[in-house]
């Protein structure tokens, strides 16, 4: 299976799932002639049609794999794994920030992402991470007055103070 065929297949699956979900949208007494499911169904048909076209074209244009394909695929797999690592850092942030709070969590994000991108574990990295986090806190919380998650710290400090 070449790349275009897989893209077409994924598009087709998306179209079918989306169409099925559109079919389950409630019927309303207030609905107009088109209805809330009208255009979504048309979009699903169109995506399904173009996805099928892409698959057919991919099958018709099938060419022998050029030399070095295995090497290229291996590189792409490595790249995808590295991308997933960054995604994991982001997901980790979303999960931990309500508990650890913004200042600590964003410092960790900068430090871990720096190391993951090839930076050295050093005092400099730690200092830059802390300064970066301080800068972001200054802009968002102090300058723009946008509250970021405080974590468990305010409650913990309050308890300790009692």
């Amino acid at each position: 299976m070449n790349r275009d065929f897989v893209a077409g297949l994924l598009g087709l699956v998306l179209a079918i799932v989306y169409y099925a979900m559109a079919s389950k949208i409630q019927v309303s007494q207030l609905a107009d002639d088109v209805g809330p499911e009208g255009l979504p169904k048309i979009y699903a048909w169109m995506l399904g049609g173009f996805s099928t076209l892409l698959m057919v074209r991919a099958l018709l244009q099938r060419a022998p794999a050029p030399a070095g394909t295995a090497e290229v695929k291996s590189k792409e797999a490595t790249a995808a794994r590295r991308g997933l690592g960054m995604l994991a850092i982001g997901v980790g942030y979303v999960v931990l920030v309500p508990t650890l709070g913004y200042p600590l969590c964003i410092t960790l994000v900068i430090a871990i992402a720096t190391l993951y991108q090839g930076g050295q574990m050093s005092l400099r990295t730690a200092a830059i991470s802390a300064l970066g986090a301080l800068g972001l806190w200054f802009v968002f919380v102090f300058l723009l007055h946008i509250g970021q998650p405080a974590g468990i710290w305010p409650e913990l400090i309050e308890r300790l103070a009692r």
Partner: peptide
């Protein structure tokens, strides 16, 4: 350096 900038941009 790219790794610092990328990490900061992500944050």
């Amino acid at each position: 350096p790219k790794h610092y900038l990328m990490a900061f941009i992500f944050a």
